[in-house]
Computed example of a mutant assay.
Amino acid sequence: MTYQYPTYDRQKLYNAVHGKDTYTFTLGTADLEDLGVKLPNDQAQIRDGGRFDLTPWRKNPPRPSLLNTGLTPREILLDASQVAGHLFLQLEPSGGPNGMGEISATYNPMETPTLRVVHVEPV
C-alpha cells in the first residue's frame, strides 16, 4: 500500500495550529540528509517516527537558492518552524508517488511525553 500526502502549504499549517487541528504533508524526499540530519542516531529517530522540536531547523537555515525550484525539504521545515513548534516526522517506507518511500510531517496539537531533538548540520 502506498501513501501519498499533499505538498506543504503554510496557510494550511497555520490554520491547523490556530484551530488545534491536524495537518499532514510530504517533505518530498525519502533521504534524511535532505533535511540536514546526518548523524545515524538522529536519522534512526526520524525513521522510527515521533514528535520533533523544530528549533534545530530554525537555528540552522539553509542557504537561499538562486534557482526558484520550489522549497527543498529543509526549507519546508525552516518555514514550518516559523508557524509550529513541533511536527511529527516519520519515514513512510512505501510512501510517495512511486511507492519508494518519503518522509511525512504531521502537525497534531496532541502533547506526548517525549519531544525529540535532532542535530541539524549547519550549511
Results as ranks from 00 to 15, higher is better:
residue 1 M to E: 10
residue 1 M to W: 04
residue 4 Q to C: 13
residue 4 Q to S: 12
residue 5 Y to W: 07
residue 7 T to A: 11
residue 7 T to I: 07
residue 8 Y to V: 02
residue 8 Y to K: 07
residue 9 D to L: 01
residue 11 Q to L: 10
residue 13 L to A: 06
residue 13 L to W: 08
residue 14 Y to E: 12
residue 15 N to I: 07
residue 17 V to I: 14
residue 18 H to D: 07
residue 19 G to V: 00
residue 21 D to L: 09
residue 21 D to P: 00
residue 21 D to V: 03
residue 22 T to G: 04
residue 23 Y to P: 08
residue 23 Y to W: 03
residue 25 F to L: 04
residue 25 F to D: 09
residue 26 T to A: 05
residue 27 L to G: 01
residue 31 D to V: 14
residue 33 E to P: 05
residue 33 E to N: 13
residue 33 E to A: 13
residue 35 L to C: 12
residue 35 L to H: 03
residue 36 G to T: 04
residue 38 K to C: 14
residue 38 K to S: 10
residue 38 K to W: 12
residue 41 N to S: 11
residue 43 Q to F: 00
residue 43 Q to E: 12
residue 44 A to V: 09
residue 44 A to W: 03
residue 45 Q to A: 15
residue 45 Q to T: 09
residue 45 Q to H: 09
residue 46 I to T: 01
residue 48 D to Y: 00
residue 49 G to L: 02
residue 49 G to Y: 07
residue 50 G to C: 02
residue 50 G to I: 03
residue 51 R to I: 01
residue 52 F to G: 00
residue 55 T to N: 05
residue 55 T to W: 07
residue 55 T to D: 13
residue 57 W to H: 01
residue 58 R to A: 13
residue 59 K to H: 09
residue 60 N to G: 01
residue 60 N to Y: 01
residue 61 P to L: 05
residue 62 P to Q: 12
residue 64 P to G: 11
residue 66 L to G: 14
residue 68 N to Q: 15
residue 69 T to C: 01
residue 70 G to Y: 03
residue 72 T to E: 02
residue 72 T to H: 06
residue 72 T to I: 00
residue 73 P to R: 02
residue 73 P to D: 07
residue 74 R to P: 08
residue 75 E to D: 08
residue 76 I to E: 11
residue 76 I to N: 04
residue 76 I to H: 04
residue 78 L to V: 04
residue 79 D to G: 00
residue 80 A to P: 08
residue 81 S to V: 12
residue 82 Q to M: 08
residue 83 V to K: 00
residue 84 A to Y: 05
residue 87 L to W: 09
residue 87 L to Q: 06
residue 88 F to H: 09
residue 91 L to C: 02
residue 91 L to T: 14
residue 92 E to T: 11
residue 92 E to W: 12
residue 94 S to L: 14
residue 97 P to A: 13
residue 97 P to N: 13
residue 98 N to E: 14
residue 99 G to S: 12
residue 99 G to T: 06
residue 102 E to L: 10
residue 102 E to C: 12
residue 104 S to E: 06
residue 105 A to H: 06
residue 106 T to D: 07
residue 106 T to R: 15
residue 106 T to H: 02
residue 108 N to Q: 11
residue 109 P to W: 06
residue 109 P to M: 02
residue 109 P to T: 05
residue 111 E to N: 11
residue 111 E to L: 14
residue 111 E to F: 05
residue 113 P to E: 11
residue 113 P to R: 15
residue 113 P to F: 13
residue 114 T to R: 13
residue 117 V to D: 01
residue 117 V to Y: 06
residue 118 V to H: 03
residue 118 V to D: 05
residue 119 H to P: 00
residue 122 P to W: 04
residue 122 P to Y: 09
residue 122 P to M: 08
residue 122 P to V: 06
